[in-house]
């Protein structure tokens, strides 16, 4: 895999009040690369993902997305970069309850100023990619956990992000639905050519990565190619 990193963390530190969650973490993701971040609960995995997504601002260190230093950008540009270059999938879909799937998936494009028709075409394409095109008009309450996660994935990919961040993407699903979602996630990220950073405690999910980074007490304990 060649090319400049699409995501780069350099010496990232973050504390909740006085409790350090990350104590100097550096990593790079190249285009198309799949990386699993593993480690026991409380090791800093989710904090790392939230810093990478620009949801949390590190106390020290730098986060670069497509070469742009997130902390050096004004809030508005940071939010725009987050919307267009970074796709996020959380453990429980986090869809807007009242909106049909097509609108949920189109939402990032609408927020970014795209025309409704154009946004719906893109949303329909990604609903098709994740295998739930027939549910475009359903609202989240009508969906299974697996379908919800697929919709969340479609929403994460609709803007054409360089990097997809997934926090325990299969965590709310049973083993079979989890495996199916993992296959869809890998296929869709590959189809899009996006790098994928997955935080997981599931060894089957971790096994699908090119690289495993294991955290312990806010530091990288080891990093191995798979």
């Amino acid at each position: 895999m060649t090319g400049q990193p699409v995501l780069e963390l350099e010496g990232v530190e973050y504390s909740y009040r006085r409790n350090p969650a990350l104590r100097g973490v550096s990593l790079k993701l190249k285009p198309g690369e799949v990386v699993a971040v593993t480690g026991a609960s409380g090791c800093g995995k989710s904090t790392l993902l939230h810093c990478a997504a620009g949801i949390l601002t590190p106390d020290a260190g730098v986060v670069r997305v497509d070469g742009e230093d997130l902390s050096a950008l004004p809030e508005e540009r940071r939010a725009a970069l987050r919307r267009t270059k970074v796709g996020i999938v959380l453990q429980f879909g986090q869809l807007v309850p009242d909106l049909p799937l097509i609108d949920n998936v189109a939402l990032p494009l609408l927020l970014d100023g795209h025309e409704r028709g154009e946004a719906h075409v893109a949303a329909r394409h990604w609903l098709d990619q994740v295998g739930i095109a027939d549910d475009a008009d359903a609202v989240p309450a009508e969906l299974s956990g697996g379908q919800t996660q697929r919709a969340a994935l479609a929403r994460a990919l609709v803007t054409g992000p360089s990097v997809v961040l997934a926090d325990e993407p299969t965590g709310s699903l049973d083993s079979r639905a989890g495996q199916e979602l993992l296959d869809v996630l890998l296929r869709a990220a590959r189809y899009r050519g996006a790098a994928l950073l997955m935080v997981t405690h599931d060894n089957v999910v971790a096994s699908s990565a090119d690289r495993e980074i294991r955290l312990r007490d806010g530091l990288i304990q080891h990093e191995v190619s798979l």
């Binding site: 060894n203 089957v204 971790a206 096994s207 699908s208 495993e212 294991r214 304990q221 080891h222 191995v224 190619s225 798979l226």
Partner: peptide, 13 residues
Amino acid sequence: LARQRASHLRRIR
């Protein structure tokens, strides 16, 4: 142990 972990993960894949 880290290398063994990688070897096990590769086998699952």
